[in-house]
Design a protein around this nucleic acid. Structure first.
Lengths: 130, 130
DNA sequence: TTATCTGCAAACATTTTGCAGCGAG
DNA sequence: CTCGCTGCAAAATGTTTGCAGATAA
């Protein structure tokens, strides 16, 4: 089992304070900035163990970095990103959640998870075509 | 502009033959297996340039590898994957296509693209719980 | 011809791992 | 006391880049 070390609780508490996804290196820097003495490897190991335990969510950034966030059990939303200027809009798609669950059930799949990414060109960029 | 080299057309043609997402290294191996002499760096550079030109789609695998696939203009489908045994079902989601376009329009975004991945536990694996 | 592309190997960034010592239980 | 956890630095991966030579146009 896990021992509750100073480092582990530091990571857990930091994640509790943050709402966005952060990279391991970012979290490491934040901890050091807080005056917490902690090694990068430990941050990675701790995050991995938290992720294994389902206590945090992990996703990959566009350039392959792993991003972590404390697990939000519910109420997730998706992002709509402009491929031109990078503008991002948070969107909520109840219909998609429903659709996902439905499709899963239709094929006998349980415990469905979904990842959705929307990309487009935003109004500003569309109008500003060169 | 791009020169049409032996290597570049080899990559393009290989992608035309494949339907799934493949990693750069995988594509490199396939090309070598085909007897095509091509360096890994060239594969990376070519894929990057194709991606920049919007000729291929890129996404990130769970473990941070970049995966490439020739751009499918329309009529795409999504996959529902069993997290336990890896079984894959192709699904078609007209409602999602609609939802995506709608959400995009709502926010003034044009030319919406979406990536959707569904993961769950399939019937067999659910029933076979140890 | 000549600017671009290629291959190789070295450089990079992120993440993982080996090992000696620390410390929670 | 013990065994897991930590820190460091070295190793592993996947990707990028510098450079000299090959080559498409």
């Amino acid at each position: 089992m896990q021992r509750m070390t100073r480092q582990r609780s530091a990571v857990t508490e930091l994640l509790a304070d943050l709402d966005d996804f952060r990279s391991a290196q970012q979290l490491h820097e934040l901890l050091r900035a807080q005056g917490q003495g902690i090694g990068l490897a430990t941050v990675y190991r701790t995050l991995q163990s938290l992720a294994d335990g389902g206590e945090i969510d992990v996703l990959r950034s566009e350039d392959g970095e792993a991003l972590y966030r404390r697990c939000e059990r519910q109420e997730h939303h998706h992002h709509l990103v402009c491929r031109r200027c990078g503008a991002t809009v948070e969107i909520d798609g109840p219909s998609v959640e429903t659709w996902a669950a439905q499709v899963g059930a239709q094929h006998g799949f349980a415990d469905i998870e979904h990842t959705i990414e929307l990309t487009g060109t935003c109004a500003t960029c569309t109008g500003t075509e060169t």
